[in-house]
Design a protein around this nucleic acid. Structure first.
Lengths: 218, 218
DNA sequence: AATTTAACACACTGGAAACGTTTTTTGTGT
DNA sequence: ACACAAAAAACGTTTCCAGTGTGTTAAATT
């Protein structure tokens, strides 16, 4: 019974990716279950063999996203680079992710699937926080970050950075692009938590890192 | 009777602007007439004094957009700069406009309000074409554009540039940002239609123009 | 070849939500 | 106290859509 379900789930995973893309393109409410099954080239009946409701479908997508995200962070953590590099890579991905997030989708999630959405956000935040804590530890061990840091506070502040970057009117006063703002925030963070060695490393790498950001923009 | 209607329309115009913003933020289908009246701080009844249906409301927004757009082009045309500068300014605005256009809104317009949308697009295209023709004439008179141009063909090609810039996969092969692509296309166009004097002018101004584009990005 | 399984297309239903209208309430100016 | 306009609420109608059920076809299994 359970193995059967697992097999179904495995088969269904690539479809989840497709459906996610569809949602981003057309919106959630604009796609009914008929539309979705059509776009996938399967019958609605079959679709309902994988999910038990549309809400369940959304939940599955969140679950899938969470898994995918954990995998990404894990793979970056495994790379043979120091803490600053890792933090930058992950931060950049978070930032790119948020950029893609359309306000309409956000609205729909909050209005029609609030409990699911909150749960997802909470899990994601927890995961980011955990990853950041590991990063702080590593950075400290590597002598890049200061050893007298209040980890909880720093994590909270940095996560707030990443979230608030979009909603806020930071860019209004000074006319900054989001990318500019991101660079400044990252630099702010690194300088705030780093030892002299860390700052020196950052300054040496700064230009190349900035270039990475320009590349990622399209 | 007619004067009365005109008064109503005048009062309603700022609301159209607000509603447009709401649509961009929340989507069209996600906002019912109750929501809209609430957000405007008026009653649904009052809203229905201005429009006779939701479809009518969309039509009014298109109408309003068209008017606004004509006004923008008119004001740029009135400026005391040469044809190349004017073309750049208008092109930049078209480009910015398209960038803001969310794929979900596009989908909704096509699916639920196709006739209205097509009519709007047609009018807009006609207007852009007309403006470009004037620009070509002016540029030729100013000695910046060549005098042996096939206006119709050039207009068609350039308009296609602006439209296709987003849908297409131009950026896939070379990894170009949209802004980069826009710059290249504009330069391509100017060089293609200009006299030696025109090209010289463009080359002299090129850097400043590029800077403008960077400024506009946020 | 017969049977089972699985997927597809399509029709149907019940309930929820939206539209557009009408009625009631609220508030303001005279 | 009255008249009036706009807001709020209520209402009937219609549309939409999630979810289910039916019949058919095609492939796999026996």
């Amino acid at each position: 019974m359970d193995e059967e379900t697992d097999l179904l789930n495995q088969k269904f995973e690539p479809m989840l990716e497709q459906i996610k893309v569809l949602f981003f393109e057309f919106g959630i409410k604009n796609l009914n279950m008929d539309d979705i099954s059509h776009k996938l080239g399967i019958s609605k009946k079959t679709l309902y063999r994988f999910v038990k409701s549309k809400e369940d479908l959304i939940a599955r997508i969140f679950e899938y996203e969470q898994k995918r995200w954990v995998e990404v962070v894990r793979s970056i953590s495994a790379q043979e680079v120091n803490a600053i590099e890792k933090l930058f890579k992950v931060s950049l991905m978070v930032y790119e992710e948020m950029k893609r997030f359309n306000p309409i989708i956000l609205f729909e999630l909050r209005k029609y699937y609030e409990p699911l959405f909150l749960e997802y956000q909470e899990k994601k935040m927890a995961h980011v926080a955990l990853s950041m804590r590991l990063n702080l530890d590593n950075g400290t061990k590597e002598g890049l970050y200061r050893s007298d840091l209040n980890a909880d506070a720093i994590i909270a502040i940095y996560m707030n950075y990443l979230v608030e970057i979009h909603n806020s009117d930071y860019c209004k006063g000074a006319d900054l692009s989001f990318d500019e703002l991101f660079k400044i925030m990252f630099e702010q963070h690194i300088r705030a938590i780093s030892t002299a060695a860390g700052v020196a490393y950052f300054e040496a790498r700064k230009n190349e890192i900035t270039e990475l950001l320009n590349k990622s923009r399209n």
